[in-house]
């Protein structure tokens, strides 16, 4: 048992949300990248989460144990990007069009806000857990 209850669960969530923020940052940064490492336009990345059982619950049947969260995978969004007519661009195809990355800034901003709020919610859980631990140490004082 931890002195600060549930802190391992909360820290796993903070980690997962931070990874998501990193990916959003990467998507926004590459919103105009027409030539990525493989020579093709950048494809936006999507983070998926999954639960992770931290420890088996006791012998009692039907009782559940707290579950942490982890990043299950970072997948590539394969929807085709917009084609823009720009013959001057070195990455233009023979017909003069350039395939842009499939990054939609509006989606990314919504994701950014959601991830930030989720991060903040988990931070306030950590703060509360700390307060409970402090109170425990004060018992009898």
């Amino acid at each position: 048992m931890n002195l600060i209850t549930g802190i391992d669960v909360t820290s796993s969530a903070l980690n997962a949300q931070r990874t998501r923020l990193d990916i959003v940052a990467q998507n926004i940064a590459n919103a105009q990248t027409t030539r990525s490492v493989d020579g093709r336009p950048y494809q936006r990345k999507v983070v998926t989460f999954e639960t992770e059982l931290l420890r088996q619950s006791g012998a009692v049947r039907g009782s559940a144990a707290p579950t942490a969260v982890r990043v299950a995978s970072i997948q590539t969004d394969n929807t085709p990007g917009q084609k823009v007519y720009d013959p001057q661009n070195p990455d233009a195809a023979a017909d003069g069009t350039v395939t842009m990355p499939n990054v939609n800034l509006a989606y990314e901003m919504v994701d950014l806000i959601t991830a930030t709020r989720a991060y903040e919610a988990n931070l306030s859980v950590a703060k509360n857990a700390r307060q409970i631990a402090m109170k425990t140490l004060e018992i009898g004082k």
Partner: peptide, 12 residues
């Protein structure tokens, strides 16, 4: 408190 920590961690 542990249950709530788990719930908020897995809110997504």
């Amino acid at each position: 408190q542990e249950a709530i920590a788990s719930n908020i961690a897995n809110s997504e």
